[in-house]
Design a binder for these strands. Structure first.
Lengths: 339, 339
DNA sequence: CTGTTAGCGCATTCAA
DNA sequence: TTGAATGCGCTAACAG
């Protein structure tokens, strides 16, 4: 019932190989024959079987995308952009959502992508063995998170520079007691929280401000965590007049905690985030914007390029530009407030 | 280099067919032989080629998921939950992100999922011809949006009841001038905005409140649209004292417009949304919670069941429960405010 | 430029 | 319970 390549060949009065060549735009077919075959194929509604094609050629025209949590804004946005690039180039996307430890383990032990994909885009930071497992696939690899990783093309941002401009903004406004809500370090290779924290320390030192450990709290990169962290900071003997949250989601949690404490933002406390979450604008959050969709699209493009030119050097590191976005959650410290 | 079924067969001293049967748990293999083969396969790191397997059997163990926009919270959350169910059952997910008209057209004309998937979960409402194209695939179909659709299993909510409880809440608080920010109707089959609007009209009528067309504005289901719509409502000769937004995202846009207009929520204007977006809690938004992840998981489960029992009736309609969530954006009308 | 010949790796008859 | 033969639908190498 389903029309195969031989059906098309018969209807067009040619051989199957000619149909194959014609439809895939390969050379060695006269234009008239190609046109005729194309017409017949369209009329018959012929679509090549992916399985048969990739079994015969080894190519799958499919990209595997590995994500820790699709529902989260950051990952959803990266995935969205990457998928558009892939599908525009004729590639399908196999999605693996590895939120739970079981799913993650299952994926890396069974490696269901084996022989199923031409390349892999990982939005999660692989542990050492996981990275090795991916490399064993023998296909181009890329990621949009974490630092340089052998065998991977990585598209990222300058976490250090971004965090610096955020904290410097607070310093320039006149703040001296500047708190930080950070994310847990997570996997070993995840340099982001470390880099952002280092920038915070550097700017403070540079401004001659002594670092107070009581002004740092862990927000776990979640809204709830950010809220908890802010509450913690407010409980300090001398609470901060400004806070740098390492992500917008934690910053939003902080805003909520402040509102519950009847503290005004930015009059009583300033808050600056990082990422430029889609809702940061609605909440008036001052932040460091990173081109999330751009990162996904760029990683996808680099992967496709490697597929086209297998000779080019396999891995590289691209840094995307950051942008400081001034909104309504930052202001000079309140002179009547607590110092 | 890559180990095939014959390699395993040779190493185990049996035939390829026996390996195939043993590894897939089919009957007709003695337990000792099966155990031995399993061990050898594991040791060799054998993974069956998906292409070869599905070419031979017709089964792909892959589900196609069609999404209008992965980056949006609602779809990302549904996808996340569905993927977990699928992958736990041993199915891979092929993702199609159909945000742009070109991508959508490309998908439905080329139907890349043909012969590639065992079932399709659509998170977008197909037009008539699109639905027909999907049905032509001859595989089980499901969706989590829109009303009943021939050939589809649909998992949804009672939009009418949800919207009613939202508007009734405002009426019970004493509001008489109640505005609504609605979404455009979109595809013909999309009954959601129509149902929610009808509920709004019904509750007003039931409360003896005359409907004022100037109190309705289109918010396009986006934050920006919600903001514009709220501004529009505020420009009315007699602006509303309360607003029902048909989605949380539009409600958030409305909150922003109100803040910019220096109007206090809920003192000056009450706002109630719909969905219970992950950030609704942070913003203190009163809303109607729908179990988004639950819908995705349930749809996935129903699809898998159809795969297991092809005899069961092909399509059905499931309604998931809604929940009214009272937060901080609604209160009785301000007696000193404009009536 | 086109057709013929072989597989790609596996699942599924049919025999044994 | 097992093995040998056959074909899934297509691509690639080789002829012509």
């Amino acid at each position: 019932m389903t029309v195969s390549i031989t059906d098309v060949a018969r209807a067009a009065g040619v051989s199957a190989s000619t149909v194959s060549r014609a439809l895939r735009g390969r050379p060695g077919v006269s234009e008239e024959v190609r046109a005729q075959i194309t017409a017949v194929a369209a009329q018959l509604g012929y679509i090549a079987s992916q399985s048969a094609s990739s079994l015969a050629s080894g190519r799958t025209f499919t990209i595997g995308v590995v994500v820790p949590y699709v529902g989260r804004w950051f990952f959803g946005t990266v995935l969205d952009a990457a998928e558009q690039v892939f599908s525009a180039a004729g590639y399908d996307v196999l999605l693996y959502n590895l939120g739970s430890p079981e799913a993650r383990k299952r994926f890396f032990t069974k490696l269901p992508v084996r022989k199923r994909v031409d390349a892999v885009l990982s939005l999660l930071i692989p542990e050492a063995e996981e990275a090795a497992a991916l490399r064993s696939l023998g296909v181009p690899l890329a990621t949009t998170v974490g630092g340089p990783l052998p065998g991977f093309t990585v598209v990222g941002i300058d976490d250090r520079a971004g965090a610096e401009s955020a904290v410097r903004h607070l310093v320039n406004l006149g703040h001296r007691r500047i708190g930080m809500i950070s994310g847990t370090s997570g996997p070993l290779h995840w340099t982001t929280p470390i880099d952002r924290r280092q920038a915070y320390l550097d700017v403070l030192a540079d401004a001659g401000i002594e670092h107070d450990p009581a002004l740092e709290a862990d927000g776990d990169y979640t809204v709830q965590g950010g809220e908890r962290a802010m509450i913690e900071l407010l409980a300090a003997s001398r609470p901060p007049t400004a806070v740098f949250a390492q992500s917008d989601e934690m910053a939003m949690g902080a805003l909520r905690a402040l509102r519950r404490h009847r503290l005004k933002v930015p009059e009583d406390v300033s808050v600056v985030g990082f990422d430029d979450h889609e809702l940061a604008d609605v909440m008036g959050l001052t932040t460091i914007a990173q081109p999330v969709a751009g990162e996904g699209a760029e990683a996808a493009r680099l992967l496709l390029r490697q597929l086209d030119e297998p000779d080019a050097e396999p891995s590289r590191h691209v840094q995307m530009p950051l942008r400081f976005v001034l909104r309504e959650t930052t202001a000079p410290p309140n002179p009547r407030g607590p110092q």
